[in-house]
């Protein structure tokens, strides 16, 4: 029963991407998309179980939208930040790798967190070992793990904790 639900999710996802790509509502193209994505979904899909972390409750959807807004704003800020660093005569950097701690356990949550960190000001996720993320920081401004966690992770984690549980 669960498997059918996951396959339905994949089918809708594929169909939405197809409809966005053709961006026209001609009947034969839509029918082709429906049939082909249905065929793909009916094939054996080994990693369907990752979908068990995704649930659709109003609270989660609301937090996803808020997270998207926060995320895009951070992307904007980080781009300005890096662009300004680049054009200064002496580049203001103090590079290093710091360790931060995360409470997230689901793979999707960690993926979203790692990607969000990479796209925010001056940080790239280098590695994940157990519950620690190792982050390359263009100008290190924290002395220990707690301080770095507070500065880098906590802003996103409070949303991702609700979204992916």
């Amino acid at each position: 029963m669960k498997s059918i639900f996951y396959r339905l999710t994949v089918w809708i996802l594929l169909l939405v991407v197809w409809l966005l790509l053709i961006s026209s509502i001609q009947l034969q193209e839509v029918i082709a998309g429906v049939v082909i994505s249905l065929l793909i979904v009916l094939m054996p899909l080994p990693n369907l179980s990752v979908f068990r972390y995704i649930r659709y409750t109003p609270k989660r959807i609301l937090y996803s939208i808020i997270f998207l807004g926060v995320f895009l704003w951070e992307v904007f800020k980080s781009n300005i930040d890096v662009a300004l660093r680049v054009i200064k005569p002496i580049i203001p950097i103090r590079p290093g790798i710091v360790k931060v701690k995360t409470h997230l356990t689901s793979p999707f949550g960690r993926l979203a967190l790692a990607n969000a960190i990479t796209l925010t000001p001056g940080t790239i996720t280098v590695d994940i070992i157990d519950e620690y993320l190792y982050i390359h920081w263009i100008s290190v401004e924290a002395e220990d793990v707690d301080q770095a966690t507070e500065k880098i992770v906590s802003n996103f984690e409070k949303y991702l904790e609700v979204i992916f549980g």
Binding site: V75, S78, N79, D81, V82, A83, R85, V86, I91, I93, P95, T118, L119, P121, G122, I124, H136, I138
Partner: peptide, 15 residues
């Protein structure tokens, strides 16, 4: 302009 590969990656990813 960046001095090493990590920092070049910072510029290449974000901007």
């Amino acid at each position: 302009r960046m001095p090493d590969t990590y920092n070049r990656m910072q510029a290449g990813t974000k901007a």
